[in-house]
Write a protein that binds this DNA or RNA. Structure first.
Lengths: 78, 78
DNA sequence: GCGGATTTGTACGTATGTATG
DNA sequence: GCATACATACGTACAAATCCG
């Protein structure tokens, strides 16, 4: 879980945790990963923090987000 | 743009720049002016600085701000 | 096709912590 | 000490697109 007391920003911790889960293959392709409200509940952080973490993952090329659809694990380049 | 080296506080410089844009008629009435995050990006300052500048403009009676809606050029008094 | 639920996008309000001059 | 400026993090509200019964 995220650590409130850590000097590392929560959204960075969260991004790293999610990255590990993505790389573990926990989330099947072609299906959205858990929604922002779901992650929010799961980790006990605000939606803004979840969105900041997902933004990092997008910047890392790990996920793609589609409005009103969800966020998906990025396709391995064809 | 704002000048980091100026002895004038950034938020005051920003308020003056926005005031000039408002008075030029750049922002049509009944539509929100650019959002805080937008201005933040545009001028390369923090959201806190944007908010401080907008607070000044509200105090000058130039704009009105509505939560979750946006900031609008103040109506000319009827 | 309709309507409600879901999901992401956007916007402002607020608080706290850090750093600088 | 105070003002300025930044980053982080919470909350609330609403819009727009999509999904599903």
């Amino acid at each position: 879980m995220v650590d409130e007391m850590s000097p590392i920003a929560l959204y960075i911790q969260l991004a790293n945790l999610l990255e590990a889960r993505i790389k573990s293959g926990e989330f099947p392709p072609r299906k959205p990963i858990p929604s922002e409200p779901h992650i929010q509940q799961e980790y006990g952080v605000s939606r803004g923090t979840v969105r900041a973490a997902l933004r990092l993952l997008r910047e890392r090329g790990l996920v793609v987000t589609m409005p009103a659809r969800g966020t998906y694990v990025a396709e391995k380049k064809a």
